[in-house]
């Protein structure tokens, strides 16, 4: 469902400085509608700062950017309404039940009670979690939690979903089930912007960018990247690039 000409993220020379430290250094790239875009980089390369700017949480120092059709300087509230976000570190409220979490997030995005009620049922069914609806989230295994968190992040049908290391610590079977959900979301036209430390997951992306010292040093589909660096795996591509880094976190 990837449509080449519709850009949902456009970053041009996007830069963020903290004092004399340039966390993100003139990054320029586009992401297409329905694309699964892998955003890789070593710890400290500037991924989180870049993501915060794209999510409307942090104003750039210079450069331009549009996300979901809105300007990253002037329309960040509109950006927030049109994106979804989940991370490994924080995704759901552990002391709320499964249903309460869905209700809470959907309510924040202003969805109607009717919409929430209907969609909650279909999501619980899809996740095979009908029996867990009234259980506290903290009682669920991590893998279930992360799959639920992803469903919650796209509940309001955003144009783009940002996933920050969504599969860290998750078992290999659940990790694959999670990627299955990503594929399905992308097939409905949701653009997926994802970071990961698992290099096999980089292979599942349509295109991958690799950040080094605040710059995007490579951006292409996985097979082109491997060809360009003359290696057989994304792991080696990543190591070759990340080892050139001069700054540490």
């Amino acid at each position: 469902m990837q449509t080449k000409n519709e850009k949902v993220i456009q970053a041009n020379q996007l830069t963020k400085r903290f004092g004399d430290f340039t966390a993100v250094d003139q990054i320029t790239f586009d992401v297409n509608k329905g694309e699964i875009f892998g955003f890789l980089g070593a710890n400290g390369a500037g991924k989180t700062t870049a993501m915060r700017m794209l999510c409307g949480l942090s104003l750039p120092t210079s450069g331009t950017g549009r996300v979901a059709g809105f300007d990253v300087y002037k329309e960040n509230e509109k950006i927030k309404k049109n994106i979804g976000y989940m991370s490994q570190k924080f995704s759901l409220y552990e002391d709320l039940t499964v249903k309460e979490n869905i209700r809470f997030y959907a309510g924040i995005y202003g969805k109607s009670d009717k919409f929430i009620k209907e969609k909650t049922q279909s999501i619980l069914k899809q996740l095979h979690m009908e029996n867990e609806a009234d259980k506290l989230v903290k009682a669920l295994p991590l893998g279930w939690r992360q799959k639920l968190a992803f469903s919650v992040a796209i509940f309001h049908e955003p144009q783009i979903v940002f996933l920050d290391e969504p599969t860290g610590g998750v078992d290999p079977v659940t990790r694959r089930e999670f990627w299955n959900m990503i594929y399905q979301a992308a097939a409905t036209g949701i653009t997926v912007f994802v970071t990961t430390h698992y290099m096999d997951e980089a292979e599942y992306c349509n295109r991958v960018s690799i950040m080094v010292d605040g710059r995007i040093d490579a951006l292409d589909n996985p097979s082109q990247l491997k060809k360009r660096f003359d290696v057989s795996s994304m792991d080696e591509v990543f190591l070759k690039l990340a080892r050139q880094a001069t700054r540490s976190e």
Binding site: A42, N43, Q88, G168, H197, M199, F238, L239, A242
Partner: peptide, 8 residues
């Protein structure tokens, strides 16, 4: 956990 491939 949460550490990039190079540091690992």
């Amino acid at each position: 956990t949460g550490v990039d491939a190079v540091s690992r």
